[in-house]
Design a protein around this nucleic acid. Structure first.
Length: 591
DNA sequence: GCCGTTTTCGGCCCGACTGTTTTCAGTCG
């Protein structure tokens, strides 16, 4: 596979495609020996484009891409040329200068752009095969800066690559937490432990993680490290000592445990929670105040003293910043907000009062209405909508109209006799490829609540898929769109869709958008949820429960909402049912 | 190449590790 697949020519490159072009250009400039800050500027811009919630192509066409942080006049122009011609001239020129195999060499561990370029200039090595041959015949050592050890490392890196090691293997957060949370609990119970905290991307509640970072303090650090290595879920441990241990669980999860002195705990936890972008931006802001932040403390230029912090709050306070919740630490404006006192008060799990997406035996759920109702009530939900699949679902999960009629009666009857939770009858209706629904309007009108979701024909063209979902938004009996993009984390990309256009349609029609909490969906994603809420679209956090324990997925949906800067106000189902009911499109139309 | 409660020019996050060197550049996270 080519490292940078050329997009098929079409009018509107996606943000991901533009980001890929910028990343490629950064890599090529790096090989060309450009100063590193220029290269970094391209990579920062690529990341900003990839995360942008609006169409960067659209912005660039209007000359407004510069409003994305990290994009200036030059990149605005380059993106514009990319839109017009399908390529960036400087990239085409550099591609001709450096063979594609050179990039593969820079991706080997231990060989960066500088050393790869040196081998190319001195020995004309422009492929992994030539590199291997040169290492085997001991010719690498003829180049200044390379020795026998370098040859050995190159051959080891190539062998590891052939064995398929070092693949960027990320696991969905729920799988990582299933391992990490019991491990944290066990370590907290250890007699030598004082504090044990989850750090890293898991603490920021990212969609998936590469490994798990734990930070601890202990009055007997070595005993805690040994205790960690001896836990029953741990298959292997290395570097076990007073500083911590590197563990591998039987599930293959890599765990990095660091044990530090209590006075540095805040600095370490802040550093290892990340993200890289947040920490870099934090340090840049600190430098402007004459302060230098590292994992060990905060060095003050004024007196040459390094101050350590027992808590993260202290680290942020030293820099004149309000405490930033881990979910916000992605350098998406949180530092400016922390400096200006305008950080949002994020929605919490206990704020969510109702569940508006659940399945029972009538479709593909595993339990009765009553079992689901009691499970929801047990978890503190004040209302629950039963929303089985609609008529065309297939695989034996479809609910024909006459069956839905009976389901309405069943839910109404059970609601009469069930204390402590309001039961509502709804449906998760399929949006057919032409944008229509598969129940008649008069049946949909009799329900309390309708979610419309796409479950078929995922591979439609972007324009058609957008029109399909916008049509669903415009339907008078659709209250909410379910799992908008259809992505499955690490397994299935989102379908081609103009999310901006859907958000606009939702705002215009009074349709809500769901954050589906299923840990492999978390869809809306954070940046889309943020954009939707900013556009005034009410967000609903649902678990899409198919069995009682699925109600516990709520924390993943809430985490996505928090990563999207949402407050309790932004999330519609933080309200009691009576209040929520009036926000539904069907209620607004009647009034 | 970007960016500005010191700046429109001159900076650009911080530290560990490695292998090759006589003091450090390149790589990595």
């Amino acid at each position: 596979m080519a490292p940078y697949p050329r997009a098929v020519t079409k009018a509107e490159p996606t943000n991901a495609e533009i980001a890929l072009a910028l990343d490629e250009l950064g890599d090529l400039y790096e090989l060309d020996g450009a100063i590193i800050h220029r290269v970094v500027a391209y990579r920062n811009a690529a990341k900003a484009v990839r995360e942008a919630s609006t169409s960067v192509a659209g912005l660039a066409r209007e000359g407004r891409a510069t409003q994305i942080p990290g994009i200036g006049k030059t990149l605005q122009e380059k993106i514009q040329v990319l839109l017009e011609t399908g390529d960036i001239p400087s990239a085409a020129k550099l591609r001709a200068k450096f063979p594609a195999g050179l990039l593969a060499i820079t991706r080997l561990p231990g060989l960066g752009p500088k050393r790869a370029r040196l081998l190319y200039d001195e020995l004309a090595i422009d492929s992994l095969d030539k590199l291997r041959a040169a290492a085997e015949s001991e010719r690498l050592r003829t180049v200044k800066g390379f020795g026998p050890k370098a040859e050995e490392n190159v051959l080891a890196a190539l062998a590891a690559r052939d064995a398929g090691e070092g693949r960027e293997e990320r696991v969905v957060l729920s799988r990582a937490l299933a391992v990490a949370e019991p491990l944290v609990a066990a370590l907290r119970d250890h007699p030598a432990a004082d504090r044990v905290e989850l750090a890293g991307s898991a603490r920021r509640w990212t969609d998936s993680v590469k490994d798990v970072d734990l930070i601890a303090t202990a009055h007997d650090p070595e005993a805690l490290a040994r205790g960690a290595a001896e836990l029953p879920t741990v298959a292997a441990a290395t570097g076990v000592g007073a500083a911590g241990a590197k563990l591998t669980t039987y599930t293959g999860m890599k765990i990095d445990l660091r044990i530090v002195a209590p006075e540095q705990f805040g600095n370490l936890l802040q550093h290892f929670t990340g993200s890289k972008q947040h920490n870099e931006a934090l340090r840049r802001a600190a430098v402007r105040r004459g302060l230098h932040v590292s994992e060990y403390g905060v060095l003050d230029d004024a007196d040459g003293e390094t101050r350590t912090c027992t808590t993260e709050e202290d680290v942020y306070a030293l820099l004149g910043l309000a405490y930033v919740e881990p979910e916000l630490r992605e350098n998406r404006g949180e530092l400016e907000a922390a400096a200006g006192g305008s950080l949002p008060e994020l929605v919490r799990i206990e704020d969510v009062r109702g569940e508006l997406h659940s399945h029972t035996l009538a479709s593909d759920g595993r339990n009765t209405i009553q079992e689901m109702a009691l499970a929801a009530r047990e978890r503190g939900r004040a209302y629950l909508a039963i929303t089985d699949h609609s008529a065309s679902m297939g695989f034996g999960s479809d609910v024909p109209p006459d069956e839905l009629e009976r389901q309405i009666e069943r839910v109404r009857a059970l609601d009469e006799t069930t204390e402590g939770i309001d039961l509502l009858i709804g449906s998760e209706v399929n949006v057919l490829p032409d944008g229509s629904l598969d129940y008649d309007d008069d049946l949909l009108a009799r329900l309390d609540w309708v979610i419309a979701s796409v479950h078929t024909s995922f591979r439609m063209a972007r324009e058609e898929m957008t029109a399909r979902i916008v049509a669903a938004c415009e339907h008078p009996w659709v209250d909410c769109i379910g799992h908008l993009t259809g992505r499955k984390i690490e397994r299935r990309p989102p379908y081609a869709l103009d999310v901006e256009a859907v958000i606009e349609a939702a705002a215009r029609t009074g349709t809500m958008l769901e954050i589906n909490s299923s840990p492999d969906r978390r869809d809306l994603i954070d940046v889309h949820a943020r954009a939707a809420a900013a556009a005034g679209v009410p967000i609903v956090i649902n678990t899409d429960a198919h069995k009682p324990s699925d109600f516990d997925y709520l924390r993943y949906g809430v985490a996505t909402a928090r990563r999207g800067w949402l407050t309790r106000e932004d999330v519609a189902n933080t309200r009691p049912w009576a209040q929520f009911a009036r926000m539904r499109k069907r209620a607004r139309a009647v009034r």
